[in-house]
């Protein structure tokens, strides 16, 4: 499936970029991230466990590899996730553009989803992916506004060593995994 869209952040690109480097911010917007470890420079492995609505799923293990990274403009993620309920494979591409004094994020993920969740979850797939993407991005935008107003969630100083891409990975991962898990009614 293709998940694509744009999202306007009411903040300059640099602010958005910086935000995306902050894992603590993202963690707040992302339920169910249990673990995410950097195993190589551009490769991450993690485990997610999310429960929403009637669906509560077992853990998914996820591997993400970053490529085509042009800071602070764009990057591509190759995603592989699997668990007892199925798997996902695919790529996601994220771009940031200046737009009217703010930032326009363009995202496009092409994900193949298989196994049990592919077979029984189609009715909800589109709604879930759109809802979760929107909710995640709206949460980020709120944080952008907080920062512009000088209010911080107080996590920006934590984990300075964690790179921006980890944060971005978390965001997109969450979207991916939520899609995976939420699809059944």
């Amino acid at each position: 499936m293709i998940i694509e869209g744009t999202f306007p952040f009411a903040a300059p690109r640099e602010v958005v970029w910086e935000l995306l480097q902050d894992p603590a911010v993202l963690a707040q917007a992302i339920p169910g991230a249990k673990r995410l470890d950097r195993v190589e420079d551009d490769r991450f492995e993690g485990e997610m466990h999310v429960s929403v609505g009637p669906v509560s799923a077992a853990a998914f293990s996820v591997t993400v590899t970053i490529s085509d990274k042009v800071s602070p403009e764009r990057f591509t993620m190759t995603i592989e996730g699997k668990g007892p309920l199925g798997f996902t494979r695919g790529t996601a591409r994220v771009e940031l553009h200046d737009r009217d004094g703010g930032t326009l994020m363009k995202y496009r993920a092409d994900l193949k989803i298989g196994g049990k969740i592919a077979g029984v979850g189609q009715r909800m797939l589109d709604s879930v992916s759109r809802t979760m993407t929107r909710q995640g991005l709206e949460a980020l935008n709120r944080e952008v506004q907080n920062r512009l107003a000088g209010i911080s969630v107080g996590a920006t100083s934590r984990s300075p060593a964690v790179r921006w891409k980890l944060s971005m990975v978390l965001l997109l991962l969450a979207i991916v995994v939520l899609i995976l898990i939420l699809r059944l009614a």
Binding site: G121, L184, A185
Partner: peptide
Amino acid sequence: SLVPTMNFRLAQ
């Protein structure tokens, strides 16, 4: 809704 979801093991 819940029982089929449990039978699929999507809800545990």
